[in-house]
Amino acid sequence: MTQAIAKGRTGAPPVLLGAAGLVAFVGLFEVLPRVGILPEAYFPTASTIGRTMATLVTESSFWVSFGETVQTWALGLAIAVAAGIVLGVVIGTVPVLRAATASTIEFLRPIPSVALIPLVIVLVGTDMESTLILVVYASFWQMLIQVLYGVADVDPVARETALSYRLGPWDRIRYLVFPTALPYALTGVRLAASVALILAVTGELVIGSPGLGHDIETANSSNSIPRVYALIVVTGLIGLAANLVARAVERYALAWHPSVRADVPA
């Protein structure tokens, strides 16, 4: 739908527009340091960053760090998504639980994960587990809130119909709650995926647990500025890939939903 509108207005396919935007951005980063608007010593040109990335991908230690960051991210995301779905459905379907936990959730949710860094260093240490805790903590709330909203969004008429037809608790979850909550949950996964990546890299940067974030810090303290930028671009690409995958899953799992079906007006 939105794609159709974009195409109708400009006449160019959105993929081309997106590519043009990217090229312009890269071009700007090539020109600004060259002409001296940005000091080249601290802002390497896009081509320097590209060359550094080319050597980076030939180093085995880079791929080890890459694997470590992806592992922390994926594991943290999986735990947060699983916990968010289970707790979200349980809390969301039991009104008493929802009322009892609402204020606690609203208190815990806004605590920035990074504020817990000193705590996890003392309690858990400086290994991957510390970063994992931060990742799970931050992305869990994204998931839980979406699932809670999704569960609460069940159409009252549909709910009463289900009750009239005496659907059991399991069937109500399967045919009533699940289709309603699924779009919310998948949005939650997408939000949680990017938050999880932010926290994975932050944790590695600040705590020093192994991964790309730690490599950024090492490159920084070695005054290897192009390498710092190259690693940052890599983390950005991981985020981009994660978002693309999450969107693809969304389109696939919600093919029936009006928000995804282009032929039916929402």
Partner: peptide, 10 residues
């Protein structure tokens, strides 16, 4: 993916 990554970290 998570478990594969776990195996690959040397």
């Amino acid at each position: 993916v998570a478990s594969m990554a776990a195996c690959s970290s040397s």
